[in-house]
Nucleic acid binder design. Structure first.
Lengths: 193, 193
DNA sequence: ACAGTGATGTCGCGTCGTGACATCAGCTGG
DNA sequence: CCAGCTGATGTCACGACGCGACATCACTGT
């Protein structure tokens, strides 16, 4: 097998993000992206299902990583904590600076179609984590709920971290949000210390 | 203001559901739907944003109802229970027989685009319920988590009810799932009785 | 030199969704 | 009864989307 340059995908992604930044997502067409990357429109759609998918190119790999981490986790006797620990353990800086993640987030929030896609990706992560928990021997219903709630907790913490009013660590943020979940559950008592 | 027949919307909806049933969602075009309803394609898109939206025509009204119910709820001191009670209190039979809801569900599950839309609608319901809780004086973070978790619980219960292996009541199903959530939270003890 | 393979280009097509304007029915005041 | 208004629908044109089918070109190993 030849060592293809595989330059197109990266160039397309780069071109798309630039154009989204310059003129917004809606007002950027696949044709424009392809032109800037010096390929055909057809080629664009070979690499990306649709325009939306460019912004979520890493999501699938991210999911795989998280699932892998959870499968390797030392202790899953408390499923919800195992999930949040897994999410907290990931190096989110790999996805770019907080500033750039913030811009990406704003763009997604501003566009219904992008918001849909984001929810799907999060849902898929939750699904994957739930499946991982089941493979670790957790009861199916509990696994699903733990994964869902865990992702929910993370989402809240992540949004707060993105807002960046204070400089709290993402891990700490997750812990804070998680602890507030305890008061939700009937019969729960707040954690000591 | 004239008493318009307003027949088009209902006819379009009817035609669309028939065609989806007959030949699947993907293989049905807006043109076909419009033809069967004896209107123009343009008219179809005046009533529905897109093909997907036909299957979620009632979702917005449903959300409003649920939000209204939660705002009127007697007791929200336990936010999560308030949410699940609200969801359990709704008359889901209004959305059609369990059989027809099951078919609708299968169709959605089989199509990525429809799945996206469904997640969005559920998310909007959770958003609305979270907002309602906030207006009832619940702490914002707790409100968001309670709404999210509540919808999550409901979704699990609903799926199980749809599957219909046993003939358990939806309300009972919700209660069952909810009780299993308790074991998730660190420091929680299971409910007595 | 040759055939094989994978990325890309080319062409054509049906669908999607919308803006702009025309039309037609019914109602409303004179 | 006419004129004018209003809201639903039709008509037309258009750009964007996404994909199937096939051609082409670069590079590979033998």
């Amino acid at each position: 097998m030849p060592r293809w340059e595989h330059g197109s995908e990266e160039r397309l992604k780069q071109a798309a993000l630039e154009l989204f930044q310059e003129q917004g997502f809606e007002d950027t067409s696949a044709v424009q992206i392809a032109e800037r990357a010096r390929v055909t429109t057809r080629t664009f759609f070979r690499y990306f299902r649709d325009k939306e998918e460019v912004l979520f190119a890493d999501a699938d790999a991210l999911k795989e990583t998280l699932v892998h981490d959870l499968l390797q986790a030392a202790d899953v006797s408390e499923p919800l904590r195992a999930v949040t620990r897994t999410l907290a353990g990931f190096d989110w800086g790999r996805l770019g600076s907080r500033e750039s993640q913030h811009r990406r987030n704003a763009m997604i929030a501003a566009n219904p179609r992008l918001l849909e896609r984001e929810l799907v990706k999060q849902h898929q992560v939750a699904d994957g984590l739930g499946d991982a928990l089941r493979r670790r021997g957790i009861d199916p219903d509990v696994a699903e709920l733990a994964a869902g709630a865990g992702v929910q907790v993370f989402r809240t913490a992540y949004q707060r971290w993105l807002a960046g009013d204070d400089d709290t660590d993402l891990t700490t943020m997750i812990e804070t949000v998680l602890s507030s979940l305890a008061v939700l559950v009937p019969g729960a008592r707040s954690r000591p210390g």
